[in-house]
């Protein structure tokens, strides 16, 4: 194959200034090499199986949690019970494993100077790291959701589900509603990813970036459940983790999901904007 003059110019242009694409490819490559990332994804894929087996084998169903009442006899209820727990701390932690580390690890290894002196703009680098973290969050959530739903239904059976208005939900509808419920946790997971990125950029500490989002998530839940601050509930990303309740009621309601979508978008834009500002203004010559 012969290269034309235009092709030559294009090759030079990309090699001259490594842009967003090159930075993204590099970040993805770094991520794929990490044992921790592989372990989290393998956990998301395999852990739902023993969890479903253990809950299914309980003599007394865990009635104090939503859908716990039917979790031992119905696979759809089992998948929704796990979703209830996932939204409390598992999903914020899952995404923070990468998002809380992706900036701070450069501090940890002292590699900011190395990557910043490459001919890639800080904004491109930020975009690449953020896209990588978001991609991992979505991948982790989809893997966990698919694995939980499939293993729960295989273990617990696909009988008729009792919904959140006491109505009977036929299996064909239940498949759809349970999948939609799991997917409805995407906006808050994206918001927590952005929060983890901000904490990671700001604190320059891997420990804070990974652990703090889950802790803040817990605090938000506490705030949302406390009498005086209940008005704050709709605007917290943790509330969006419970928006799926509306899908399982009859008549179904999507108000909390839509408010959660807006609230999570605002959280994401604000935290990412702050993180970008800190990254761009940061003085790396000092260390």
């Amino acid at each position: 194959m012969t290269l034309t003059a235009t092709d030559h110019r294009r090759v030079e242009a990309t090699t001259d200034r490594a842009g967003f694409g090159a930075a993204l490819a590099f970040e993805v490559r770094k991520l794929r090499a990490q044992v921790r990332v592989r372990a989290v994804l393998a956990g998301a894929l395999l852990a739902p199986v023993p969890i479903a087996l253990i809950i299914h084998a309980q003599g007394n169903p865990p009635k104090d949690t939503l859908f716990g009442r039917f979790a031992t006899t119905n696979g759809f209820a089992l998948a929704l019970l796990v979703l209830g727990f996932a939204g409390q701390w598992l999903l914020p932690l899952l995404t923070a494993v990468v998002a809380g580390d992706i900036f701070a690890s450069e501090d940890h290894h002292g590699t900011w100077k190395t990557i910043m002196t490459r001919s890639v703009s800080r904004a491109s680098l930020f975009g690449a790291k953020t896209t990588t973290a978001l991609g991992f969050a979505i991948l982790g959530l989809v893997v966990l959701a698919a694995s939980t739903i499939v293993s729960s239904v295989l273990i617990g059976g696909h009988g008729t589900l009792t919904g959140l208005s006491g109505q009977l939900v036929p299996p064909a509808t239940a498949w759809r509603l349970v999948s939609a419920s799991w997917l409805s946790t995407l906006p808050p997971t994206v918001a927590f990813t952005a929060l983890a990125i901000l904490l990671s950029v700001w604190s320059r500490s891997v420990a804070v970036g990974v652990a703090a989002p889950a802790v803040i998530g817990m605090v938000m839940q506490l705030v949302g459940a406390t009498g005086g601050a209940e008005a704050l509930r709709p605007y917290l990303p943790t509330t969006a983790y419970e928006a799926w309740h509306g899908f399982l009621a009859t008549p179904a309601f999507t108000g909390p999901f839509l408010i959660g979508l807006v609230a999570c978008s605002v959280w994401t834009v604000l935290t990412l904007g702050l993180a970008l500002a800190i990254t761009v203004r940061r003085d790396i010559t000092g260390g």
């Binding site: 939503l66 859908f67 009442r69 208005s165 709709p234 509306g246 399982l248 009621a249 108000g255 909390p256």
Partner: peptide, 10 residues
């Protein structure tokens, strides 16, 4: 004993 949820904007 039964569980139910209602629309907070209903």
């Amino acid at each position: 004993e039964f569980d139910a949820c209602f629309d907070p904007q209903s």
